[in-house]
Design a protein around this nucleic acid. Structure first.
Lengths: 204, 204
DNA sequence: CGGTTAACGGGACAGTCGTTCCGTTAGGAT
DNA sequence: ATCCTAACGGAACGACTGTCCCGTTAACCG
């Protein structure tokens, strides 16, 4: 018998029960994360909430970080498509408000905090987080690129950098202050990013 | 005998041995943090490095989060004073580069990641973190206020918001991407904040 | 519809983490 | 210099986390 690295559990028979277990565990993990945060995650508790054996969770994910990473990948698939308004200022504001609403929501906001924490504890989770933001940026970059084509922004402006500039102040505020994330903050972030972009601050 | 909440250990006799123990433990915690990150913190290991009993660490700090919070408070005392150049653009750039150098430094950068993680696990650490940033913002806000007085920025500009706008993209980049934090990123952050401020994006 | 085996579930096990107890050391006051 | 006790250190203890083993269930294939 040859000693081979067998495939990860859940990949050979992904249908039926396996899928149900994964969904139940991810949902339970989300609940637990919102309630206790990443530090207070208890895989035994999650298994119980999901109506699943502890062993199963350990076998399929192996730890809290990988579980959160999987949760993040699941979230990435359900991310909302961007709106198209035709105006850069409108687009940036829509993006900012989407981020603001997400982070201000008790459930999703707590989830994002937890995921950021996990990314700083586990390289797998960090990779998943980067993938998630790459996808988000790629979703919204076109509206900036179109603004460049229309001549609203200087040629050579880096679209991704502008999109990140919208989110950055909102995340920074969430992490370092106790102030609530309101719409005013979102609109300010969008306006600031737009003004800086027009001034050529994001030219390569 | 009255049942009173006795003072925290270390406050009644803060001199001599107590101070030495605190310094040794904080230094050891810093080392451990750089090596294993926040998730891999082991109080037993820290105690051994510091040449101190495990019990002492648990008694005085009670957990990893509070220890990191204390470490942060210690750092806050040693924070560098701002420079004064007389030009807004120069001041913002100096601030941005200071933040960039701090976060890019393996030792301090790891520490800041850890502290942000701790702040999401423990309310005491969160308070310490907020205090730290309030102090930092208060240190740098005057240079923006002076620029407003000189007429470089529109009246009604919120100095604190401008200072935070400089740091935000750097933290966001550190947390969500794998790209290194270089001087170019710092200069871009400073330029963007300055441009947005001149455009009146941070008016109350 | 029946067989094969991937995946699950429960229980037992070992290692670790944080706490408690109590004797010892040394800071601060007289 | 001497006393008092805050603070430290070592050891034992209990709880919990993650792993292993093996019997059971149900997904996929012919």
């Amino acid at each position: 018998m040859v000693e081979e690295s067998q495939p990860t559990p859940g990949t050979v028979r992904p249908g039926g029960r396996t899928a149900r277990v994964r969904a139940a565990v991810l949902r339970a993990a989300e609940d637990a994360l919102v309630e206790h945060g990443f530090a207070g995650l208890d895989l035994g508790d999650i298994a119980q909430r999901a109506g699943v054996g502890r062993t199963t969770v350990y076998r399929r994910w192996g730890g809290t970080s990988a579980l959160v990473a999987d949760l993040l990948a699941d979230m990435a698939e359900q991310s909302l498509p961007r709106t198209r308004s035709g105006s850069l200022a409108e687009d940036l504001r829509a993006n900012a408000r989407l981020v603001q609403r997400t982070l201000a929501d008790p459930r999703q906001g707590g989830l994002f905090r937890a995921v950021i924490v996990a990314a700083n504890c586990d390289t797998g989770a960090a990779q998943a987080l980067r993938r998630f933001y790459e996808a988000r940026v790629a979703e919204w970059a076109p509206c900036v690129a179109e603004a460049v084509e229309r001549g609203e922004l200087p040629a050579g402006t880096d679209p991704a950098e502008v999109v990140r500039a919208v989110s950055a102040p909102l995340y920074y505020r969430m992490l370092t202050t106790a102030d609530p994330l309101d719409e005013a903050a979102a609109d300010r972030a969008a306006a600031a990013a737009g003004a800086a972009a027009r001034a050529g601050a994001y030219c390569r």
